[in-house]
Amino acid sequence: MLTRLLPAAVAALWLGSALPAGAQVAPSVAEAAAYGGMHAAAWRGDAAAVRRLAAAEPWSIDARDAHGRTPLHAAAFAGQRAVIRVLAEAGAKLDLLENDRYDSVTIAAVADDGQTLALLLSLGASAKQITSRYDGTALIAAAHLGHAGVVRQLIAAGAPLDHVNNLHWTATIEAIVLGDGGPRHQATLAALIEAGANLEIADRHGRTPLQLARSRGYAAMEQMLETALGRRRSTGR
Rank of each mutant, 00 (worst) to 15 (best):
M1S: 12
L2Q: 15
T3Q: 14
L6E: 06
L6W: 09
P7Q: 02
A8I: 13
A9I: 08
A9W: 12
A9M: 08
V10K: 11
V10A: 13
S17V: 09
A18T: 08
A18L: 12
A18F: 00
P20Q: 10
A21T: 04
A21E: 14
A23H: 15
A23E: 04
V29M: 13
A30L: 15
A30V: 10
A32K: 03
A34C: 09
A34P: 02
Y35S: 01
Y35C: 01
Y35R: 01
G36S: 13
G37I: 03
H39I: 00
A40F: 06
A41Y: 03
A41R: 02
W43T: 02
D46L: 03
R51H: 12
R52A: 14
L53A: 02
A54W: 01
A54Q: 01
A56N: 01
P58A: 03
S60E: 06
I61F: 05
R64V: 10
G68A: 08
L72R: 00
H73A: 01
A74I: 02
R81I: 03
R85D: 08
V86F: 07
A88Q: 04
A88C: 06
E89S: 09
K93M: 13
L94P: 14
L96T: 07
E98T: 06
E98L: 01
D103Q: 13
D103M: 11
T106G: 10
A109H: 10
A111Y: 02
A111P: 00
D112G: 03
G114V: 14
G114E: 15
G114K: 12
G114I: 14
L117N: 11
A118Q: 10
S122V: 02
G124W: 06
A125H: 08
S126N: 09
S126D: 11
A127Y: 01
Q129Y: 01
Q129F: 01
G136V: 13
G136R: 09
A138V: 10
L139N: 13
L139D: 12
A141I: 08
H144E: 07
H144V: 00
L145T: 09
L145D: 04
L145K: 14
A148N: 05
R152I: 08
L154D: 09
A156Y: 00
A157S: 03
G158Y: 04
G158P: 07
A159N: 06
P160K: 08
L161T: 12
D162R: 05
H163P: 06
V164L: 15
V164S: 04
N165M: 05
N166W: 00
L167H: 00
W169S: 00
A171I: 05
A171P: 10
V177F: 02
V177Q: 00
G182L: 11
P183L: 11
A187D: 15
L192F: 07
A195T: 10
A197Y: 06
A197K: 06
L199H: 03
I201Y: 07
R204N: 05
H205K: 01
G206F: 01
G206S: 04
T208N: 09
P209W: 05
L210C: 06
A213Y: 02
R214M: 09
R214L: 06
S215I: 00
R216A: 03
G217A: 10
Y218E: 03
A219E: 14
E222R: 15
Q223K: 15
M224Y: 10
L225D: 03
L225I: 09
E226S: 13
G230F: 04
R231M: 07
R231I: 06
R233I: 05
T235A: 13
T235R: 11
R237T: 08
R237N: 06
